[in-house]
Design a protein around this nucleic acid. Structure first.
Lengths: 151, 151
DNA sequence: TTCAAATCTTTCATCCGATGAAGTAACTCT
DNA sequence: AGAGTTACTTCATCGGATGAAAGATTTGAA
């Protein structure tokens, strides 16, 4: 409270809240996982199973060329492997290596910790927050991310 | 639901949820306010009253040089004005111009709309979400943003 | 079958925002 | 008055993201 931070009690405050939480989470994760970037964290989270690069690009709202660069980096560090999709030999499937799988587990544990520490919410409230976030996530996906509208 | 998106029900999902909401909000805001960048939106929200550039830098977790650049841009477009603080002539106070004040009002309205549309939550749930976010924001501020620890 | 169009990924040049070091001006403390 | 600190600016630089163009493969139409 020391530094006036309440602004308007409306859209502005929520915008700041979301931005601040986003930041605080990544900030903490960066401490626990110094050698992975923000995008790499999200990338690993998504690799619960092998995925096509194109799908990852869509999910992350990024261009294919961005995914290529991310994949190059993680592959160079031995965390993921490229494998041709036998069904369609144009596409690459990205899959975690053994090292990558272990890394991902650590990362998820760290993410959990970061969330608890950053929010400071007791279990029950954190659950309520998570439930709301899940609903929001489904809405955003269903509503279609505005992004692009290539045509 | 179409594209598997539930990952682990834990830290990973919340991380994705926060990141996705952050994105969706800015995405929508960018449509409604095409000529302002993400940071400029947050910048304007904070300018409910005149502020020192240094305070803004702290609040936004940015370097002074970053704030200088942002201020330059907004000043060039006539939305804010620099004014020396009579109390301490080293500091600049940033204040909205008339045009800036009007712009900010529009922006806040747009932010409100973006939040409603992006989350898709009914009023009551949105209020609960906002309340939790506010608590989180206070916790993050009180707990001190880890950032930096210059020493 | 064959060939044109569409799809998936990569390459590369480029851009924009953020960073950090060094500089200027003003304040504080002794 | 002078040393040290604080507030902001300048500028060179970097990293991540973009978009256009090209290569490889599949799909669809004749």
């Amino acid at each position: 409270m020391s530094e006036g931070d309440e602004i308007d009690g409306g859209g502005g405050d929520m915008l700041l809240g979301v931005a601040l939480l986003y930041w605080a989470l990544h900030e903490r994760l960066e401490r626990l996982e110094p050698e992975l970037s923000k995008q790499e964290h999200l990338f690993l989270v998504r690799l619960s199973a092998p995925r096509r690069m194109g799908d990852l690009a869509r999910l992350m709202q990024a261009l294919p060329s961005t995914v290529t660069a991310l994949a190059d980096g993680l592959e160079a560090r031995g965390l993921i492997a490229r494998r041709r999709d036998p069904e369609d030999r144009r596409v690459w499937l990205l899959d975690l290596t053994e090292a990558g799988r272990a890394r991902r587990e650590d990362m998820l544990a760290h993410a959990d910790r970061a969330i608890r520490e950053a929010t400071g919410l007791p279990e029950a409230d954190l659950d309520r927050f998570a439930a709301l976030l899940t609903r929001i996530r489904h809405h955003i996906r269903a509503d279609g991310l505005p992004k692009g509208l290539p045509f």
